[in-house]
Computed example of a mutant assay.
Amino acid sequence: MKNIVLFDLDGTLTDSSEGILNSICYMLEKQGLMIPDTETLHSFIGPPLGESLQELYELTEAESKKAVKLYRDHYAEYGIKQLTIYAGIDKALAELAKEYPLALATSKPEIFAKQILENTGLSGYFTGIFGADLIGGRSKKTDVIAYALKQSSATAGVMVGDRKFDIIGAKENRLMSIGVLYGFGDQQELIAAGADQIVARVDELPAAIKSSFK
């Protein structure tokens, strides 16, 4: 396969903040850990959860694994349903799917990502859904993107996402990158990470992606 368009999930296709943050707060309470301010809470969205817990709370690897399991158990039952699709995503994906193979590349566990795309009716636009595994062997965005490219037999493409992890992961896999401002990141973060393009609105995505392949 030639060119491929990879999409992040949380903050790019869906606003999943309610479900993620509710599950994080549940986990922190169960672990007897202080619930941080809103800005810090939102920083959990994007990077691998275990790494964030070890960094912010100085947990051991064993402690973070226990906390991640609490989070996932709660998220699987409740959080996975607490999200909305960003307005215009259906239209953008329908337009792009006519010209390019689309795939999902998310740090969310693959089993959850597949369920979310089925629940939201977006799965039909994608030729592949690729995410993290449940044992921590594939959790960083760079590794997920590499896995997606290998499974798709793609040699080039563009990564679309809202956080620096998407942009850095794209660069480390020699892909072009497009940062979106309607998600959980901000312009300063995306510029610092080296995004090739930055768009503010969903309806700007098709043109930005098409220009990446010129």
Rank of each mutant, 00 (worst) to 15 (best):
F184W: 10
C25E: 14
E58D: 13
Y57Q: 07
N22C: 11
Y71L: 02
Q82Y: 10
S23Q: 02
L149W: 00
I135E: 15
L149I: 02
K171C: 10
D15W: 01
S139H: 15
P101K: 00
L33T: 06
D186T: 07
L83V: 10
Q82S: 12
K141F: 02
Y78F: 11
A146V: 08
Y57A: 02
L181V: 01
I80P: 11
I168T: 15
K141Q: 03
A62R: 15
K108M: 04
L102M: 06
R72F: 01
S152G: 09
E99L: 12
L49V: 00
D10I: 04
T14P: 06
G131D: 05
A207C: 09
Q188C: 13
I135A: 14
E58T: 14
I45H: 07
G136I: 01
V68K: 06
T60V: 01
L96R: 00
S16G: 09
D143T: 14
Q197W: 12
K150E: 15
Q54F: 05
Y182H: 02
R138E: 10
L21D: 10
M27K: 02
S152P: 11
I198E: 05
G19K: 05
G161R: 06
F44A: 07
E18S: 09
A193E: 11
G46R: 06
I85P: 05
E55L: 14
S153Q: 15
V180S: 02
S177D: 10
G131F: 05
L49I: 08
A67I: 09
K91N: 13
A94R: 13
G194T: 08
T84E: 14
K2C: 03
L21V: 14
L181M: 06
A154M: 06
D37R: 00
I4F: 08
K114I: 06
M159T: 08
Y86A: 00
A97M: 09
G131M: 03
P47D: 02
E58L: 12
V202M: 06
K108Q: 03
D203P: 06
Y57P: 02
A146P: 01
P47E: 02
I168C: 00
L93I: 11
K69C: 08
R138S: 04
I4H: 01
D203W: 01
S16H: 03
H42S: 07
R72K: 12
S64H: 07
Q187N: 14
V144D: 04
L28H: 03
T120Q: 09
M27R: 03
G137H: 15
E118N: 13
G179I: 12
D166T: 04
I129T: 10
T142F: 04
G161T: 03
T120G: 04
C25P: 07
S17T: 11
G161A: 09
I35V: 15
